[in-house]
Write a protein that binds this DNA or RNA. Structure first.
Lengths: 341, 341
DNA sequence: CTGAAAGCGCTTACAG
DNA sequence: CTGAAAGCGCTTACAG
């Protein structure tokens, strides 16, 4: 390979010390205009880029933020990742992604991996931080990590003064969906999807109850059908709903994938959405526009979410004070999957 | 923060030299069982993980592979990424992802970014490597990079003996689709989607011609409708197709997103798929099972693709010889979007 | 404003 | 088998 050129080569050629070259590279101290110009010419000539490994070793900072998430093929996570990367780069940080493939065990490997890489901060989404009954080992592992490295949890349920939490205002999002549905005359509203051991399920179901209560309504427990978070799961949930003697006129789904599954199963059963059933999704992944009918859903503000996460972690790294938790507003996006009753 | 513990602390506590600790960590040289045991106890006690920054600086290798791709929210790319990460980790490499947000200009920033990070290899997908008329600057930039760092291009059209190419056998995939459709009695087959300046469009259209020729058929040029690669684009293409005086009985789409858009527009026009039009997708992203009807599509072998990419780049880094290009078979997945005529 | 020197945390010839 | 020392490519007090 081409012989690597270092700051020493630059210094020799520009007839200065490496210290001077370094000062120009970092801008950390004044250098006379003449020598600066001379050195910069050499820098240009060789298209010199300082070795980040060496620089960061010296800084004792890696300038990397670790990201652990359960599934990068899930649009919800990949969209957040893309937003975060944009903002991280703007702050001179790199993102090191570890895709845990929906395995809590692999998350542990991810923590070790990021630890070896000396990440300056950790962003943790999904997986263990959403388990209602989390084993002590898994919990301790994360908290121990957070004791050493500034950590931000996204939409997670782990409480600890060692971590900051950035979350979307799901309660507010559900309330918007309920307001909209009741405005259309619905009084019988269920919630499909999710999993009994995942916090978001519990939280969103509670949010539904609360929102309905605001309208003097109650929810029928049978209409809260949990299973999982996938498209297939949406199909399963609708099947189960259709077994019941009485059915709601509208359902809010735990996420858009489930909603897509519900739409699919509805077609299968010749059940017309929205004529016979109104459906609301959650997340607003970019697929919602494909479905038939197009899905009305509650949208995260992905851009705000991403920038808040990066902002929070960077501040924590710089030991600036940050709130223990930040809430990002959601917004209802009305498309074609609901109608007036 | 907790004071960082280093190899020196371990050495002091175990009463050996840092060299010995290092030898145990790396297994690079024999150490007597007794001292080994003693040191390992200290290592365990502190859960010591060697600082990768320092280690790699010493190795003069970063053990990182850079990945540049146009859009991580696209399931095609995120699925490949996930597969690659699994194999990379197994080979002790880390993946550093740069999401170029569909911008050739940002790809340039990505190259600089990965260069600063001293990646040992580069995996480049989409974007400039698929531009039919690529500006000299963009091309040169990539080739210059490849001259310094082992580079693998995935499904790309750039020719250079400096890079290896790993690609799926798209020609074979299209041929399978055509065989299937002709087997169902179709003789009038079009291709929707893609963009005139992107190589895959040209290549897949050519593959369609060749496959049809095998069956003594020709393609009607009007039925090759390019626009772009998105869901919306699929809608546009079908609209355009429906304007024509004569229409094919089957279409192969440039990718699944386009196919999903075609299905959507077809519903809009009360055009029954597959009764009135058979539709085949390409890529087999995980969404194909959601659509109505479920999409028959040509599938990449993502696992094989991912492992071949990593295998190829690692071999190039180790200066083992690798073929200039490798072809991965595709496979037709039959679902419900086609029917006999 | 500038340079010589030490340090970041590891690894690996070189001796013994 | 083991240790002292140099080196990986930077940055930054410390002097001047």
């Amino acid at each position: 390979m081409s012989t690597k050129i270092t700051i020493y080569d630059i210094a020799r050629e520009a007839e200065v010390s490496v210290a001077t070259v370094s000062r120009i590279l970092t801008g950390s101290a004044p250098v006379s205009p003449e020598t600066k110009q001379r050195v910069e010419a050499v820098l240009q000539k060789h298209k010199f880029r300082p070795n980040k490994l060496a620089r960061n070793l010296s800084y004792q900072r890696s300038m990397m933020l670790g990201v652990i998430l359960p599934d990068i093929t899930n649009p919800y996570f990949s969209t957040i990742f893309a937003e975060m990367q944009r903002d991280a780069l703007a702050s001179d940080y790199s993102l090191l992604l570890f895709n845990a493939m929906n395995s809590l065990e692999l998350e542990s490997e991810g923590l070790a991996y990021l630890s070896r890489h000396q990440v300056d901060g950790l962003i943790f989404m999904g997986g263990r931080v959403n388990e209602i009954t989390l084993s002590d080992r898994y919990r301790a592992e994360l908290v121990d990590f957070a004791a050493k490295v500034p950590t931000v949890i996204v939409n997670g349920g782990i409480q600890s003064d060692l971590v900051s939490i950035v979350q979307t205002d799901e309660r507010g999002g559900i309330a918007q969906a309920v307001d909209y549905l009741t405005g259309l005359g619905h009084t019988q509203i269920g919630m499909l999807g999710g999993s009994a051991h995942i916090t978001v399920t519990r939280d969103r179901q509670a949010a539904l109850r609360a929102a309905l209560a605001e309208h003097g309504l109650t929810v029928c427990d049978e209409w809260l059908i949990a299973d999982s978070f996938s498209i297939e799961s949406g199909e399963v949930c609708l099947e189960r709903l259709l077994q019941l003697p009485e059915q709601p006129t509208a359902v809010i789904c735990i996420n858009d994938l489930v909603a897509l599954g519900v739409l699919k199963a509805a077609r299968h059963h010749q059940l017309d959405v929205p004529k016979q059933l109104s459906v609301v999704g959650f997340d607003d992944i970019y697929l919602t526009a494909v479905s038939a009918p197009e899905l009305t859903t509650v949208s995260h503000n992905y851009a705000a979410l991403g920038s808040t996460i990066i902002d929070t972690i960077v501040k924590r790294i710089n030991e600036e004070s940050v709130p223990a938790s930040v809430l990002i507003d959601m917004e209802l996006v009305v498309r074609d999957s609901c109608r007036r009753v």
